[in-house]
Simulated assay, not measured.
Amino acid sequence: MPFPKLRKFQALTLLLCVLTFTMVLFNYTLRDPSGSGYLFLKYAVRLSDSLFPRGPCGCGAGRCLAEVTEDDSWFAERFNQSFHPVMSRKGSLLSDDTYRWWQWLQAERQPANYSEVIDRLFQVIPDKELYLDSGPERCRTCAVVGNSGNLKGSHYGALIDASDFIIRMNQARTEGFEKDVGYRTTHHIMYPESAVDLDNGTSLVLVPFKTLDLQWLISALTTGNIQYTYLPVMAHIKASREKVMVYSPSFFKYVYDTWLDGHGRYPSTGFLALLFAIHTCDEVNVFGFGADQYGNWHHYWENNLEGGAFRQTGVHDGDYEYNVTQLLADKHKIKLFKGS
């Protein structure tokens, strides 16, 4: 009998013994609820928990992203659950270092008072601490859907739509591409200059690069008076205000410092979406990242093979980001689907 099968047989035998022992004690406890049977039953439950410990999530052995094994030092050094992707009023305070770094990304000459903007922001959108429910009862599956042309002809649509969370970004389209990219979206990550209208079932996740971006969000959901940042932007955006959230600048900097080691000027939206998923999900499947089979970096809805020129701008280090993504896949933290 092969060794893995032997181990499974031994584990099953042990489990049956524990269950039989527990049932006997349970029957005895019914007859003597205040006596020694009750104590034996408590001991049996504790023994069962120690022999068959529950993992950090409810997805099953070896399937929990946050589960760290002996050879996971690289992941363990980087994955810090004290950082939360979504901002709340309570979690909006920025250290001086984080504030300076964040304001440097798309430098404003005279930024508005950050505290006052935050106070107004959480009068417009919900002030909730989200996705802090990780534990052995939860098994949240997530699909991070990038915009790469490698999705064309992939037929991943049904697989993507089967996930609990489906995260898309920027100007991603589904209409006409459902067979390859799916039709459902639960979270759409964008910044003001890449904004699109959303249906009422989708959460808007704004990535702010400056205080003005927070002001734009307030405006886009109310007065519509901000129509220009460094580019023309949508005056109003169609989205359910109750589902709007903001990507935390502190988490933004954590991604840049810890996961990218300072490569590029700042992370791409796709990499920010990936780390959002890693910190809110128990299983993460990644689609539409990287080049297509011919080495082209373009969007699946475009015929322009010169798309993806951002890799040469120096703003994002696309190659480094993809190498980190591939390493996460190699370490079985995520599943990376590379398309047709």
Score class of each variant (00 low, 15 high):
325 T>Q: 01
15 L>R: 10
169 M>G: 14
107 A>W: 08
335 K>L: 06
283 E>D: 08
325 T>P: 00
74 W>R: 07
20 T>M: 10
274 L>M: 14
51 L>S: 13
24 V>I: 15
32 D>A: 13
273 A>H: 08
47 L>K: 11
128 K>W: 08
221 L>W: 11
121 L>S: 13
316 H>W: 02
246 V>M: 06
203 S>E: 05
33 P>K: 08
219 S>R: 14
308 G>V: 00
329 A>L: 07
71 D>I: 13
115 S>W: 09
177 F>V: 09
128 K>E: 14
221 L>A: 10
155 H>M: 02
255 V>G: 02
269 T>N: 05
19 L>I: 13
131 Y>T: 09
61 A>H: 13
5 K>H: 14
137 E>G: 11
103 Q>R: 10
221 L>Q: 12
5 K>Q: 15
276 F>T: 06
335 K>E: 12
17 C>S: 05
285 N>V: 05
7 R>D: 02
57 C>R: 12
27 N>G: 12
327 L>H: 15
97 D>S: 09
266 Y>I: 03
174 T>W: 03
231 L>R: 13
35 G>A: 04
62 G>E: 15
266 Y>P: 06
21 F>R: 03
130 L>W: 07
156 Y>W: 08
120 R>D: 14
286 V>W: 02
254 Y>R: 11
63 R>I: 09
211 T>Y: 04
162 A>Y: 00
295 G>D: 11
68 V>H: 09
161 D>V: 00
104 W>F: 12
190 M>P: 03
321 E>S: 02
109 R>H: 15
336 L>A: 13
102 W>D: 00
269 T>R: 05
97 D>G: 06
334 I>Q: 01
232 P>M: 11
81 Q>W: 09
23 M>N: 14
150 N>I: 03
67 E>Q: 15
312 Q>V: 02
233 V>L: 12
226 I>C: 08
16 L>N: 07
247 Y>M: 06
311 R>L: 00
131 Y>E: 14
262 G>C: 08
13 T>G: 06
50 S>D: 14
137 E>N: 15
226 I>V: 12
113 N>K: 07
44 A>V: 08
131 Y>D: 14
